[in-house]
Amino acid sequence: MSVSTPASTVSTPVSTVSTSASTVSSHIAGILVDAALSAGAGTDRIAQLLGWDPELLRDRSFRIPVGDVSRLWGLLYTLAGPRAGVLAADRAEHGRLYVWDYLISNAPTLADGLREAARFNTTICDPKVGLEVIEDGSLLTARYFDLPHREPLDALVREFAAVVTARRAVAGFGDAGIPVRVEFSHSAPADRGYLVRALGTGNIHFDQPRDAITFLGTGAPVRPNDPLLQGILREHAERMLESGDPEPPWLEAFRRVLRARLSDRATGGARLDEVAKRLGVSERTLQRRLADHRTTWRVELETVRRDLAIALLRNGSDSIQSIALQLGYRDHRVLARAFRRWTGQSPAGFRRAIAN
């Protein structure tokens, strides 16, 4: 997305690389889970809130629905109040944001590092979130926009983003990374001292038209850097964006439970209430979560039934009636109608074709 700026400025637009909408990297979600744990939330409470095991966040390839991330921010706000954004930033040690961190810290100048951060912001953020870098004379400004959360969570996210950006700048470029001005579009908290300490400056302004953090670009040192390593990091970030996103962890957890229920001969199919209970949520919450992922119980059930029916007919010797009952159908005739709809063949015809 390109943003026009006055002729006297040089603007680095945010990345336009496509990725699945309304998801956030597992790195961000992992930081929020750690912050919630440090604030007193138990693992069970977090799992219940999300409907999936937080251990799945160990997989760096996962992208988390923004709705789940909002739930984590809501939990943090309940536990820590307005300071929750800085609490989360405290858990975001250098390296927690993976390649994004190293693109900044390996850059030769602060301006170059912030440009890399803007270009590959989507590796950690919702693709709708923008990060623009503007150079205007001696000033270097990073501006975030289109943050997806509502009040009061939006203030937490803005403060988290500003503190993480400032700390990455200081880690890479020393005192030159201390901001000279910070702007927030939300109202000032009752006590802004925690932000002064976290950002290293008292020049913080609220109720502004933008969310921005400004540095003195002319004072930033030019450091020796490894351009080959920077190229490798950039290529890796590009592959992350181009490879597409795997299924979010909640949806994968749901499908794993559903497959397990249908694979168990003793269960005789899978019911909505049973799967919801296994996931630790209500039936209504389960259906709402499926809707959030643009799918339904019926669609998911039919998909797993189809895949299991094909696998059982191809690899097993069970009767078609037995397979029908295992998959939760009343009898083999109902399975036959569904199987013909899926494949254009009867179960018996499919099995004969495989045998031949």
Rank of each mutant, 00 (worst) to 15 (best):
S4F: 13
T9K: 05
V10A: 13
V17D: 08
S18Y: 13
S22I: 00
S22V: 03
T23R: 08
S25W: 04
S26T: 06
I28G: 03
G30S: 15
I31G: 02
I31Q: 01
L37Q: 08
G40S: 11
G42M: 07
T43F: 13
T43K: 13
D44G: 14
D44R: 14
R45I: 12
R45P: 01
I46C: 10
I46Q: 06
Q48P: 08
L50K: 03
L50E: 04
G51Y: 03
G51W: 02
W52E: 01
W52N: 02
D53K: 04
L56P: 01
D59C: 05
G67Y: 07
S70Q: 10
R71D: 14
R71I: 10
L76S: 09
T78W: 00
L79Y: 06
A80K: 10
G85E: 01
A88E: 00
A92L: 10
L97A: 05
D101K: 05
Y102P: 02
I104W: 00
S105N: 01
L110N: 04
G113L: 07
G113K: 01
F120R: 03
F120T: 04
F120W: 11
N121V: 11
T122D: 13
T123A: 08
P127S: 11
V129G: 03
G130R: 09
V133W: 00
D136G: 15
G137P: 05
G137S: 09
L139R: 07
L140D: 02
Y144K: 08
D146W: 11
D146T: 13
P148S: 13
P148I: 13
E151R: 00
E151D: 13
A161C: 14
T165L: 10
A166N: 07
A166P: 08
R168V: 08
R168S: 10
R168L: 15
R168F: 07
F173L: 10
G174A: 10
G177T: 12
G177V: 12
V180C: 08
H186L: 05
P189Y: 00
G193A: 09
L199A: 05
H205K: 12
Q208Y: 05
T218K: 00
T218G: 10
T218Y: 01
P224F: 12
L233H: 04
R234P: 02
R234N: 09
H236W: 03
H236K: 01
L241P: 03
E247Y: 11
P249V: 08
P249H: 04
L262R: 03
S263V: 02
R265I: 06
R265N: 03
R265H: 05
T267H: 06
G268C: 07
R271Q: 14
D273S: 15
A276Y: 03
E283N: 15
T285G: 06
Q287I: 15
D292V: 12
D292K: 09
R294S: 15
R294A: 15
T295Y: 11
W297F: 07
R298G: 07
L301F: 05
T303A: 15
D307Y: 00
I310C: 07
L312S: 11
G316T: 09
S317L: 07
S319N: 07
Q321P: 02
I323M: 06
A324W: 04
L325N: 07
R337V: 15
A338G: 09
A338C: 14
R341C: 14
S346L: 09
A353C: 00
